[in-house]
Design a protein around this nucleic acid. Structure first.
Lengths: 205, 205
DNA sequence: CAATCAATCTTGACACTGTCAAAATACAAG
DNA sequence: CTTGTATTTTGACAGTGTCAAGATTGATTG
């Protein structure tokens, strides 16, 4: 199974080199393919070609590894947000883009999304400081976007924080109903979320 | 540990009597106290005072038991719905009651709610026919309520199905953000959901 | 009352999981 | 070459779901 039983000259790696990175990558693949709950440290170690407990030198826990994966997810989503906030579309379209981007991110990477916003990490409230910070930053960023749209008069609501929470709740809820399989026709998710847009947008005159 | 090692005259129960019911009750308690993922068939058997594999005579699976629990949850929620739909309040208040009842049900029984609407059961798409039916019935019931409110002109939207899905998505999303621990101040959930109400309600003239 | 039978429950076993402690290996610095 | 440190492995343990086979019971016959 493992290639390096007979040490070859090119790379007789007892030392793997960049095990931490490899573990994260392999874990991401395994999770994307078979779901979070199907990930075991032993299968992961097998896939990377390393022994069962090797991961414990880079992650204190299975939970710690999952937190690192989630943090990576937040970084990806953050760059999507940055990209979106610096384009030149009119505000209304920008808002629509934001909503669609959120749903696209969630449905295209359902397991990563579940890791970022699901109970697996947050319920046990044992999340890494790294994850704590990046997730907080991202949320803050989103609140600011909503805040600006609200000051423009594009979207409704009294408190911008409350509005942001409600909008987030709606997107999160719709996404999760599909991700978790309560709804099973994923092709309909865009329709639903678009039909939700008028609720947020202020009545145009 | 077990009382019935020495068979007493009162009840030398090798046969438990109503094991299925007892298992469901104990499982519900264990889950409510320690969460779904902490439930093991062996701890459950211990709590009921029976051997590890006894449950397999009443449930084909652990999944089957969880489905039965979820089905019970739907029955409870269904009766709440019935109770609500036959009261005499004005429609606007009735809608508000519905929204608050939904959130209350979710936050007061978070683990049961997770069982009913969470990935644990629906993702693997191995749900019992009983659960399939009762959940479908319940959802249908809710769509009808929304449908009526929409025909009255109380709430917005074009398609009543889409509107129901969006409203459900919003409630579900807000509830899940709290249940899963993404938000941790549960006392704020009512505020948020109330601030979401104007989005659904048609502008009053 | 005794024998038989089906329902009910238990025991044994297996593969799988996360994780700890101790050993083995490789590489770098002296 | 030796020593030390970073890295990886092996051994072990408790816990999990679940299958197959055996044990126990209450009911149903003759």
């Amino acid at each position: 199974m493992t290639i390096e039983t007979a040490p070859l000259k090119t790379s007789s790696k007892y030392h793997h080199g960049n095990l931490r990175q490899s573990l994260l990558l392999a874990a991401k693949e395994l999770i994307a393919e078979h779901g979070i709950e199907a990930l075991s440290l032993r299968k992961l170690a097998d896939k990377v070609g390393v022994s069962r407990t090797a991961a414990y030198h880079y992650f204190v826990d299975k939970n710690d590894l999952l937190c690192a994966l989630a943090a990576n997810g937040f970084k990806r989503w953050q760059t999507s947000l940055d990209q979106l906030s610096c384009n030149q579309l009119p505000d209304r379209d920008k808002f629509e883009q934001y909503v669609l981007a959120y749903i696209a991110f969630a449905t295209n990477n359902p397991e990563e999304y579940e890791l970022m916003f699901g109970r697996c990490i947050w319920k046990q409230s044992q999340c890494t400081v790294e994850l704590q910070e990046i997730s907080h930053t991202t949320f803050q960023h989103q609140v600011e976007m909503i805040d600006q749209w609200q000051s423009i008069g594009l979207i409704n609501g009294d408190s911008s924080l409350r509005t942001a929470q409600v909008i987030w709740g709606t997107l999160h809820g719709i996404a999760k109903l599909f991700i978790d399989g309560v709804y099973n026709d994923v092709t309909r998710v865009e329709e639903i979320v678009i039909s939700a847009l008028p609720m947020f947008l202020a009545a145009k005159d």
